[in-house]
Design a protein around this nucleic acid. Structure first.
Lengths: 229, 229
DNA sequence: CGGACCCTTGATAGAACTCAATTCATGTGG
DNA sequence: CCACATGAATTGAGTTCTATCAAGGGTCCG
């Protein structure tokens, strides 16, 4: 399940599309002492941490999906990222968190002490390298998100979102969506209605099938890829 | 919305706005051997590196402004970031660059060998820490960019852009824009006309003065800050 | 069966884009 | 020094796309 970060880097050609979020494999290799307590179970829609909380710990997902987000004063919400099994989230440089995190689905997560891991990295070359690699992969993810948001048309955003998730799930012709339309919209900067309409239109155009709201089958993956230039 | 949490810490608006890009101070402290050649001068609008180039070097700006961007198949361009004096850019994890870089204005830049710096970091704790810090700050910048792009209204984007640049320049009531309206639009996901119209409207509303296209004075900074929630 | 929630669909209004024309700033050559 | 050319920026008119408001389906669960 947890391939090493270095192995993933070499994935290459299709890598352009893969907006895989990053993990820190070294945390699995005899460094269990860095953990805080046991695995925690979080129910769907429960908050994991809030904007402004102390960023003294970070997390890795055993299973389930997590979203990190920011609330605007008028109630709008922007989702920064979705994280799934194996992903590390909540690792921040500042003391106070600038994002909140919530469980999208029920999930199990492992907690790590930030200072402990940072200290360990000082005399642990593998960990240090993976920490930097993790940070750089996070940059890549945030940039890909910015590029998705910068796209003008809703169809481009949705096509890009679907293909990215299919790749994350290692699938060619099918994608499971663990999140609601609201979550999708808040991630792409679209309303729930536009997301829904865009998907319906894609279905009418014969590009996808929607057996149910949380599952999408690709009928013409090429056409979707062509949409995002 | 899922706001089950207790009261959140309110950040000072100014702090939330500062999207300062990051540098690596240790490169100045007796580590000049890591440089490649002398300082290079680049003329405005010249390409520094292209998408797909080998990412074996990275750069630091002595003076001038640089943009990193990506071109879409249909000619659209998305700008990922602007960098100014002191900023490091072009540091990537992958071998092939996923962004191109161009000089916005004439500029002088210093070149560093990536592998050299990475290797030096293995037995140089200060450098290692700053490298990680740099990477994490880059994450923060990319996230702020994503949040700017996710904002729905053009006025919010433009207000946020202006205030961010004023802060980067350490100014309260005035901002110098080294880039064209086209650059601004490609950064914010807007057309050049919308950027221009939005600025004109802000001027009519008495929020800003535009002595010339590359200079903006804030007449009501508070009103601008209120726009971005 | 009823209710709650999520999703979809419809009608309308508003915001941003597109195309087009004009103004402005800058630089060049006569 | 001025006429002119050039490119950037602004402004205008019309169109397109997405948000908004509102209503109706679908599904799960008590």
């Amino acid at each position: 399940m947890h391939r090493t970060a270095t192995a993933r880097v070499q994935h290459s050609p299709a890598a352009a599309l893969v907006a895989r979020t990053a993990t820190i494999a070294a945390l699995d290799e005899g460094r269990e002492a860095l953990r805080v307590g046991a695995v925690s179970h979080i129910a769907a829609d429960r908050e994991i941490f809030a904007e402004g909380d102390s960023a003294d710990v970070f997390f890795r997902i055993v299973f389930g999906t997590v979203r990190t987000c920011k609330f605007l004063g008028d109630g709008r919400r922007q989702i920064e990222a979705f994280y799934t099994a194996g992903d590390v989230f909540g690792f921040e440089l500042e003391d106070a968190r600038i994002l909140g995190a919530e469980a999208v689905t029920d999930c199990n997560i492992i907690t790590y002490r930030r200072r402990g891991v940072e200290a360990a990295a000082l005399h642990d070359e593998t960990l240090a390298r993976q920490l930097l690699s993790f940070a750089m992969q996070s940059v890549g993810h945030a940039q890909k998100h910015a590029f998705l948001l910068g796209r003008r048309a809703a169809t481009e955003k949705v096509a890009s979102f679907l293909l990215t998730w299919a790749d994350r799930q290692g699938r060619q012709g099918h994608v499971d969506l663990p999140m609601s339309r609201q979550d999708m919209g808040d991630y792409m900067g679209l309303t729930i209605e536009t997301v829904s309409r865009t998907l319906s239109q894609m279905e009418r155009d014969g590009l996808i099938a929607i057996p149910n709201a949380r599952q999408i089958r690709f009928l013409s993956r090429q056409a979707l890829e062509d949409m995002i230039v």
